[in-house]
Simulated assay, not measured.
Amino acid sequence: MTTQPATTSTNSSNFFARFAGKVTAWSGTTAAFCLALGTVLVWAITGPLFQYSETWQLVINTGTTIITFLMVFLIQRAQNKDSLVLHLKLNELLAAHKGASNRLINAQDFSEEEINLLHEYFCLLADKAKQDHDLGRTHSIEEAEENHQEKRRAHR
């Protein structure tokens, strides 16, 4: 059985992804800033020519509003992709590292309550490490507690 070619929606999605990536990358360049600055300067210089009319003001207001509105979505899309890629890389590191706790894989999908609970967990872990005077010794709360108890028994 042969594989079907990519669907039109996939092609258009890929096109949009490439387009959004290029526009987002370009919008952060010096050339983009110079173009925006030049546009504002041309608009300001033409003010006396149009007697600073409401139409003259409306042109810049409408133009900047439309561009800002569209750029918010393009930049957010790029940010979402970058964030997902970063999470995937971190998940790979967690999964590959023998001593790392796998509980944090896909932590970006946790609820706010779960994230706060994990924050408390790591605060407790940091406190245990401070008591042990060795920040890199343990990697889980269970091991930290066990090491802490062993040290207490040894000091008695």
Rank of each mutant, 00 (worst) to 15 (best):
L86M: 15
S12K: 05
V40H: 10
L135Y: 11
L35G: 08
A96T: 13
T29N: 06
F19L: 15
A25D: 04
G63M: 07
K130F: 09
W26T: 10
S101F: 01
A100N: 03
P48E: 01
K81C: 06
D109Q: 14
T64Y: 03
E92A: 06
I105A: 05
S83Q: 12
A126G: 12
E143I: 04
I45T: 14
E120Q: 13
F19M: 07
L117E: 10
Q76D: 13
K81N: 06
K22V: 15
C123Q: 15
E143S: 02
S111A: 04
A144W: 00
Q108N: 14
E142G: 07
L93W: 08
A107C: 13
A36E: 07
L104P: 00
I60D: 03
I75V: 15
L58M: 14
V40W: 14
T55K: 10
K98C: 11
A107W: 02
K98N: 09
S27N: 13
Q57C: 13
I141R: 01
V59D: 05
L74V: 07
A20V: 02
L58S: 15
Y52F: 15
D132F: 03
S111P: 04
G63I: 05
L74Q: 02
A100T: 06
I105F: 03
H133A: 10
S101R: 03
L88D: 13
H87C: 04
F110I: 02
A129E: 04
N116G: 08
Q51D: 08
A126C: 12
L74H: 02
I141H: 02
F16K: 03
R77V: 00
R137C: 15
T138G: 00
A129W: 01
L94C: 02
D134C: 08
I105V: 10
T29I: 07
L124T: 13
D127A: 15
L74A: 03
N91Y: 02
F16L: 11
E92N: 14
T24Y: 04
F15A: 10
C34A: 15
R18Y: 10
A20E: 01
G21A: 03
L88N: 14
L124G: 12
D127K: 07
N11M: 14
N80A: 14
K81P: 02
I67K: 00
I45W: 08
A100I: 10
I141S: 00
S111G: 10
A25C: 08
A100R: 00
H133S: 14
